[in-house]
Every structure is written in C-alpha cells, then in structure tokens.
Amino acid sequence: MLNIILAIFLGILIIVLAIMAVLNKNIVVAIIAAGAVSLFASVLYLILAAPDVAMTEAAIGSGLSTIIFFYVLNKINRQNG
C-alpha cells in the first residue's frame, strides 16, 4: 500500500522537477533540478527493489555529473568575462 502511494508521489515529483529543469531560465537552478530528478529516481529504483541501480544513479547522476556541469559552467563564465 505504502509502496504504491510512494511510487505515484515520486513519479509526479520527478515529472514536475524535470519540467522545471527544462523550462527554467537560470542555468544554475536547472542543474540543481536535474540533480534532484536523479536523486528521486534513485529512491524510486529502491522501491522497485533494484538497489544496485539505485546506488549507481545516486553516485553518478546526482554526484559526479553535477560536479562536472559546475566546473564547465565556471570555465564558461570565466572565458566570457
């Protein structure tokens, strides 16, 4: 029962955050929203009983890709003055 409620809740949350990541003008907010999408996706994988995939999603999707995005963004800002 709880699993079904949680799955629907997390699905709606992921869709809302993904729309926000696409439509937002501020690029920093868009990157944070994309990180939040993969964090909630990893909770959803956990509910679907796939802890291996959940761990990969949390480590790569939200951790390292956010870091690389911010390094690149910092470099672009520096080059444009």
Binding site: I32, G35, S42, P51, A58, S62, G63
Partner: peptide
C-alpha cells in the same frame, strides 16, 4: 541502508 549512506554523502557533496 548502504544506498542511504551513498545518497546522504553525495547530496552533501552537491
């Protein structure tokens, strides 16, 4: 709980 630990550490890093 292993997954919870990874999750906590990486959100902190973000």
């Amino acid at each position: 709980l292993d997954v919870a630990m990874v999750y906590g550490l990486l959100s902190f890093l973000g």
